[in-house]
Design a protein around this nucleic acid. Structure first.
Lengths: 271, 271
DNA sequence: TCGGGGCGTTCCGACGTCCGGAACGGCAGC
DNA sequence: GCTGCCGTTCCGGACGTCGGAACGCCCCGA
């Protein structure tokens, strides 16, 4: 089992670029799948328009993907992502040593802080959440319907960027999109948050993604001493008043402790 | 949002049959993906051998899928399932009304019984677990590294088959594979468990999949009265002594109550 | 240190599969 | 009932794709 897949950074997004790789039909099939990230249900016409291919081609693609279970046919000729993708996805993360090792510590952290706990990695310039443990008794429930965030407005993203110059560059090149009035969109100020993150050993994110919600993250490190890099990060997210008020020191300590213990456990397990 | 994808039954497995659908390369690409359900890591040679295609073809397929993020390249030319599949999979289940509606009730059920709680649907002749809520204080932890079971040796599968003759037939046609000395492999006896399930309104499964572990399941129904069908099922799984001993009535009541409430909530939400 | 085997990758020509346009059939709305 | 929209099917021509063989690499054993 491997700690993490290779493409932790820049897995070549290729949102609309002309796929120049071989196996054109396979490439377009993947592009067809990608259409369903934005829209939950799509028909042949819309897919064809979005990809600039013939309607008949789109129709064949949809049918072929549905035959393989990657898509499923809804009633009126529309399609949606299939459950087989859920299976594959579960297999993919189950085989990640990182997740397996981190899980018990995430559970403990949730018990300690009684807030939502997350485990995230970088995928391109986004943060992908491999795990999210919710807690019942944390007042309002945190939104659970996303699994990917722009890295710049996330405490996990900040932690990951702080130890990875190429990720930092990629994020800045993509641009710091404003989500709330509090999102840090000035490159210089954003870079300063990274410096602070390195000094403190943890990152915070106050109201920058969803107003009223803040998070604190700490890095899970790998590599030899002196050249350590964050492969992932642990974060706690909750209402801003609970995160950055009087409880902040306790939360910070909990997050850092969990991340450090996962780091150690990961080293032992991958040896 | 839709309650459940269409292919709740028989999404055409086609494990090794000669794909007669168009888009041959897409079909083989899907077949390549399928190879990774059994093995976590594969190279071009093994994929080619398993599918009976040329090594060069397999290599191109792997490269194309990796370019799309569905696979990721491990160090030495080997590949594994990519994190993008995890994303797609999460999207697929997030868009299921069933899961969204069921979640709070599953959480409550876990608090009540303090055991692992599952939500499952039928996929072919297997049960696919859409959600599994573990509990910290339940003694030994239940194995968490699978998301798909043969339906015949699962209480959820029994509940689903009990209200679906075509699923029953498909399961029997595939054959009742023995997993433990307690697995019901006699078709007649197995049919009787379905009858009992219908009479009781819930199903049990004692030591049939993993010795020492048993489960109790109740159906989530849909459709008009008189012609109701189980689209999914809730189950509680734990050590056999805790499941089928003195606590059994309490567990049964809890499971049935949760399933009934999800049924009602689903009707209201999809109207 | 050297040689061999295994593996992933690349190259090439011939084959055949896939693309795009147009026509068909079903559905919903006006 | 008509009309527009959409998913699906059919067809011929173009070009992407397949399989075999050769290459380079790494690992293993001598």
């Amino acid at each position: 089992m491997t700690v993490l897949p290779f493409s932790a950074v820049l897995p070549e997004d290729a949102s609309d670029g002309p796929e120049d790789s071989p196996l054109r039909s396979v490439s377009t099939a993947v592009a067809v799948l990608d259409c369903f990230t934005a829209e939950p249900e799509l028909g042949a016409t819309k897919v064809a328009a979005r990809l600039g291919i013939a309607k008949s081609t789109a129709c064949r693609m949809l049918a072929a993907l549905a035959a393989g279970g990657l898509l499923e046919k809804a009633g009126s000729g529309r399609y949606r992502l299939g459950l087989r993708l859920f299976e594959y996805g579960q297999l993919a993360v189950d085989r990640l040593l990182l997740r397996e090792v981190a899980m018990p510590f995430l559970g403990e952290l949730r018990e300690t802080v009684r807030e939502t706990v997350q485990l995230g990695v970088a995928v391109g310039t986004d943060v992908l959440y491999l795990e999210r443990l919710e807690t019942a008794g944390a007042g309002l429930r945190f939104r659970t319907d996303y699994h990917r965030n722009p890295a710049h407005s996330s405490s996990i993203g900040r932690v990951l960027a702080a130890s990875d110059p190429s990720l930092t560059a990629a994020i800045l090149e993509r641009g710091l999109e404003r989500r709330t009035p509090f999102t840090v969109v000035d490159p210089l100020r954003w870079r300063r948050t990274l410096v602070q993150t390195r000094e403190q050993g943890y990152a915070t994110c106050r109201d920058e993604y969803d107003q009223g919600w803040s998070s604190i993250a700490a890095p899970i490190l790998t590599g030899v001493t002196g050249r350590r890099r964050a492969v992932a990060a642990v974060s706690v997210v909750g209402a801003t008043s609970r995160m950055l008020g009087p409880r902040k020191p306790a939360v910070v300590q909990g997050v850092r402790r969990a991340a450090d213990r996962i780091t150690v456990a990961l080293e032992r397990a991958s040896s």
